[in-house]
């Protein structure tokens, strides 16, 4: 069964790569100017492109032939993970991405940690007493927080903490205090959602017959939570990780741009701005395949927590 799930993830990875290929090819075709010249620039960098290089590319790709033939070559490059060089910086796409990944992972890690400390514990407490004052208070708070998009949260924090109070720098990278505001921005959004998820999962488990039975067996609330609660909400929480990833990626793009954090999201916005197709392709591929890899990890973790063959 697990091999079947992993096989499905492999197929998913293939389709993701194909979709990235289609989208970036269409992007390439939509740009104004000579396509061969741009592709040559994408391979060797703008400085190195000569009319000869462009002609060589045109001949190799058969750009005078129909579009689908060029598309097949485009896909072939992608299939070999040959992403070329950034049109703007002239450095290989993989090097650029590797460099930015570090900064992004640093920020995302800090945000995830922070949100994990805030969201799930509050949600579990609220779910155990569904309908209680904490539950209702948290509902209002998380509804309010979820109505604040992440860029707005960043804006609010900048205005409050940096402009009004002058406590922390609004932008920059390198010193420890630089990470606080962007990480907090991301974490608050994530926590608002993860608190809700944990609350619903916990309330659902606490309403199941085995939870009532555990109480009747004489176990205290704390014993119930430790022995029967946490593991049973585990599957829902692990599955939720994938969703967090999506939120995190979108958040990172926006938050990095606002706070000037030199990560992959910041670079993506620049690449779109500069129509740097190889960079866009590399980033899209990385994010898409990262999501698939996370899905596969989630599959494995889920089976570890809940080894039953057929799940309800």
């Amino acid at each position: 069964m697990i091999w079947r799930a992993l096989g499905y993830r492999a197929a998913q990875a293939g389709v993701v790569a194909f979709l990235v290929g289609v989208l970036t090819f269409l992007m390439m075709q939509a740009l104004p100017g000579d396509m061969a010249f741009r592709i040559a620039a994408g391979r060797y960098g703008y400085d190195m492109v000569t009319a000869d290089a462009a002609a060589a590319v045109r001949a190799e790709l058969g750009l005078d032939r129909p579009a689908w033939a060029a598309f097949m070559v485009w896909l072939g490059d992608l299939g070999r993970l040959d992403l070329g060089v950034s049109v703007i910086s002239g450095r290989p796409v993989w090097d650029e991405i590797r460099h930015q990944m570090g900064a992004s992972l640093h920020l995302a890690g800090a945000a995830l940690l922070l949100s994990a400390l805030i969201g799930p514990p509050l949600g579990i407490l609220a779910g155990l007493r569904a309908g209680g004052w904490l539950d209702r208070g948290l509902l209002v708070l998380s509804s309010g927080l979820r109505a604040v998009p992440q860029f707005l949260m960043g804006l609010i924090l900048i205005v409050l903490v940096s402009i009004q109070l002058s406590w922390l720098p609004a932008a920059g990278h390198g010193r420890a205090e630089h990470i606080i505001l962007p990480a907090l921005t991301l974490a608050l959004g994530l926590a608002a959602v993860s608190a809700r998820m944990a609350r619903d999962a916990m309330a659902g488990v606490a309403a199941r017959p085995f939870y009532a039975f555990g109480r009747w067996k004489g176990l205290s609330e704390g014993q119930m939570l430790r022995r029967h609660g946490l593991r049973n909400i585990g599957v829902a929480m692990v599955t939720f990780l994938s969703l967090q990833f999506v939120m995190l990626v979108e958040g990172v793009v926006v938050v990095e741009s606002i706070f000037g954090w030199p990560g992959i999201g910041h670079a993506l916005v620049h690449a779109i701005f500069g129509r740097d197709v190889p960079m866009v392709q590399g980033t899209a591929l990385l994010l898409g395949l990262g999501f698939v890899a996370l899905n596969a990890l989630t599959d494995l973790l889920t089976r570890l927590i809940d080894p039953r063959e057929i799940r309800a």
């Binding site: 199941r208 017959p209 085995f210 009532a212 039975f213 067996k217 004489g218 039953r308």
Partner: peptide, 29 residues
Amino acid sequence: WGRTLGVLPQEPWLSLDPLMPARDQVAEG
């Protein structure tokens, strides 16, 4: 509960923790 009164619920197969071996569920009492 558990010490003097024991409750055998309806449909006991739904009343056991689905992720815990039977022996542990008895032993915890």
